[in-house]
């Protein structure tokens, strides 16, 4: 009975995950995907550091402990019995798989946040050129740097005029390619005033490493003033 209930819950959860295509999340509880990323990154760092330390310490121990004392000496490990051989396959495989699924579930949650654009997001169109960025605001104003008001999520709808570029926004922990003939999007939540930058993250030729510009989150009043001045 318990088992049956467990499976029905599991099934429900799986269905929800499969069909809950994140379209638009309700406003109000806008996630901070930058903090999400940092939290996940630290968890994964701990995970891989623990695994790495266990294996490296085990290797160092054996490399010293089992040093040959004379040239005629041979190893004394014996052939595994079938049961042991299967055990030594299934148990490690189960542990690795459990870790994989644990990380996948964590990653999926953050992914949903990263791909679910809040309803109240301000849209900015981004176009990549060899070798500069152009931003177009909802009122038609175009600029060569990106300024956004603090407190409003921003969704960037991006395309390229020539070759593939990539919009790398290290402060907000985001990147997405910018391609001719395709429109991609990312969104971020500027929760505090900050001066940061975007760099190109897909090789695009001669001045690829100079294709960067300012990205600034500023006070809403200041933003309105700035936008009006651009026109």
């Amino acid at each position: 009975m318990k088992l049956k209930r467990f499976f029905s819950v599991l099934n429900g959860a799986a269905m929800a995950l499969l069909f809950a295509t994140p379209a638009f999340a309700a406003a109000g509880d806008t996630p901070d995907t930058r903090a999400d990323w940092d939290e996940l990154w630290h968890e994964v760092l701990v995970d891989i550091t623990v695994i790495g330390v266990i294996f490296i310490v085990a290797a160092i121990y054996m490399l010293i402990r089992f040093k040959a004392t004379n040239p005629e000496q041979v190893g004394t490990a014996t052939r595994l019995t079938t049961a042991n051989a299967i055990g030594w396959a299934l148990i490690p495989a189960a542990i690795f798989m459990a870790d994989d699924f644990y990380l996948a579930a964590k990653g999926w949650t953050v992914w949903d946040h990263q791909r679910t654009v809040p309803e109240n997001a301000m849209e900015v169109k981004v176009t990549g050129y060899q070798w500069y960025w152009e931003f177009e605001y909802e009122d038609g104003t175009t600029t060569d740097e990106l300024k956004v008001p603090v407190g409003t999520p921003v969704v960037l709808r991006m395309t390229s005029d020539d070759v593939i570029h990539s919009f790398g926004l290290p402060y907000y922990r985001l990147t997405e390619d910018v391609m001719p003939g395709r429109i991609t999007y990312i969104w971020f939540n500027p929760i505090e005033e900050v001066e940061t930058l975007v760099t190109c993250r897909e090789f695009c030729g001669n001045s690829h490493s100079e294709m960067f510009t300012a990205v600034e989150a500023i006070a809403p009043a200041e933003f309105e003033k700035w936008l009006a001045e651009q026109g």
Partner: peptide, 19 residues
Amino acid sequence: GLTGIPLAMTSLTVHLSET
């Protein structure tokens, strides 16, 4: 191998990509 694990995760690679 272990540094491949964060890169396997889509939600982390959106920042680590091409770094």
